[in-house]
């Protein structure tokens, strides 16, 4: 039994370990978890807010159809954030999981990449569940929506890497409230509920700089079948954003674990 060195720094092994932890829980609980929230949101939008707003300028589809892709993008983002945020922090600070990981052939790069991959995988599961709900509610407009979930992997990548970087600087649970301080307004402003055109010009520019804006535009464009070169721009934004943060996370976690 000669140990062989795992490839890619062992990133896939970190994913495997995380899968293992969830193996105990029945798989349908995980699915239920990921589907329950979207159902609630869609209901609240469809019955409640949709009833209030009536016609939205710049939106030619039923309101629920317009909002659903934004909720899909946000749900996928949140799944990735959960895993790379507080969950990773608990493993770092309380279980000292990463400390015992890096004395094996798994490297810091492997650990960081693995956690981001895992966040993407969770985003994928959530996205798939959400898509099923959107279909069940009859909110599908275009077959291109099938590509919205794979595209959402970029969302998991971008936000997973950013939140893992943040976790590397966290001093205690309470620091996550600062993350919430960024996330909540971003959720509200990033064209989740209405097009960016309702804002005055300078605010529009600000909104267009937000990563969630690009996440939502990408998913919405595919879901509504409005294809165009701007989607590539959205995707490129997320890739660059994620890559920068992945590099940063790698450096920070390297200092944390191997100084």
């Amino acid at each position: 039994m000669i140990p062989t060195l795992p490839r890619a720094g062992g990133a896939h092994l970190v994913v495997l370990r995380n899968l293992w932890v969830h193996k105990g829980g029945s798989p349908w609980t995980m699915a239920l978890f990921s589907i329950f929230e979207p159902i609630l949101y869609l209901l609240a939008i469809g019955v409640g807010i949709g009833g209030l707003v009536g016609d939205v300028p710049g939106v030619e589809v039923p309101y629920a159809v317009y909002v659903a892709p934004a909720l899909l993008a946000t749900a996928m983002m949140n799944s990735a954030l959960e895993e790379t945020g507080q969950s990773a922090y608990a493993k770092l600070a309380f279980d000292r999981f990463y400390h015992s990981l890096i004395v094996t052939p798994v490297t810091v790069t492997g650990a960081v990449t693995g956690e981001v991959l895992w966040g993407m995988l969770r985003a994928l599961i959530t996205g798939t569940g959400f898509l099923a709900v959107i279909a069940a509610f009859g909110l599908v407009q275009s077959p291109w929506i099938l590509l919205a979930v794979p595209a959402g992997l970029l969302i998991g990548f971008a936000f997973g890497a950013a939140s893992l970087t943040f976790t590397g600087y966290v001093r205690g649970w309470h620091d996550y409230q600062y993350m919430q301080l960024i996330m909540l307004p971003m959720f509200l402003f990033a064209t989740t509920f209405y097009p960016v055109t309702v804002y005055p010009e300078p605010v529009q520019l600000l909104v267009e700089a937000l990563p969630l804006y690009h996440a939502i535009e990408l998913v919405r464009g595919l879901a509504l079948g409005r294809l165009g070169p701007s989607l590539l721009l959205n995707a490129a934004y997320l890739i660059v954003f994620g890559t920068l943060f992945l590099t940063w996370a790698r450096r920070r976690w390297g200092r944390l674990l191997t100084s």
């Binding site: 060195l5 004395v103 052939p105």
Partner: peptide, 24 residues
């Protein structure tokens, strides 16, 4: 390590299994 830093989310046996996979 001095602090055991075992994986509290896994069982005793799973701790060994997962750790072994890290070694390929």
């Amino acid at each position: 390590p001095q602090d055991d830093s075992l994986d509290t989310q896994l069982t005793v046996e799973e701790n060994l299994l997962v750790y072994g996979l890290y070694f390929g």
